[in-house]
């Protein structure tokens, strides 16, 4: 039996919707695990990424920890894939780029409605926010992009099967959308 392809996934500044969509491939996941071994992913709960063939990242880059995880993935993965709108163009989290970081923090923790004990969190454990949310390709080299909010399970399936079979990636018209 040929060695299985190692795949890792992570969610950065995303909503886990893309991972939910990945799980929406339903029983096809049984076919997938015949040829794929999962390394670090929210599904396996492995915390550190090791050497992998494919790394799939959901979400944009919003804080220092996101940068660290993304760089680790780039270092360990032969092929890096941006999955979903946030990874591809920043998506909804990047809408905060219209405001300064201070404005965002004040709105969330000081001046917003229903806040008790108003104060901006400042603990060494909390990753520092970047002043702008960035898509993955503005931080590391990205090999493939899978747009959509989220990409449909069928689009993810098309991508994974074609990639694993070494075919050129081509999607039917209805599988590519940005929303």
């Amino acid at each position: 039996m040929p060695e299985k392809i190692k795949v890792a996934t992570a969610s950065l500044a995303g909503c886990f919707g893309c991972h939910m969509s990945l799980l929406d491939i339903d029983e096809r996941i049984l076919d997938l695990v015949q040829v794929v071994d999962f390394d670090r992913t929210p599904i396996t709960d492995i915390k550190k990424v090791g050497p992998c063939d494919v790394g799939i990242i959901e979400g944009g880059v919003a804080n220092a920890e996101n940068v660290e995880v993304l760089r680790e993935f780039r270092h360990h993965c032969k092929i890096l894939v941006a999955m979903g709108a946030c990874a591809t163009n920043g998506g909804i989290p990047a809408m905060r780029n219209q405001f300064t970081l201070e404005e965002c923090l004040r709105e969330s923790y000081v001046e917003g409605m229903g806040i008790e004990n108003p104060m901006v969190p400042n603990d060494a454990e909390i990753p520092l926010l970047l002043n702008k949310v960035r898509p993955l390709h503005e931080v590391v080299k990205v090999d493939y992009f899978l747009p959509g909010c989220p990409p449909s399970a069928d689009a993810i399936w098309t991508f994974l099967t074609e990639l694993i079979q070494g075919k050129p990636i081509a999607f039917p018209y209805t599988q590519i959308h940005y929303d």
Partner: peptide
Amino acid sequence: QALAYYTGMLSPHFTHFFPL
């Protein structure tokens, strides 16, 4: 958006301006 689909645009490729 429709033209981006038509031309097979999968990513914005360039660095975003995020203009105000």
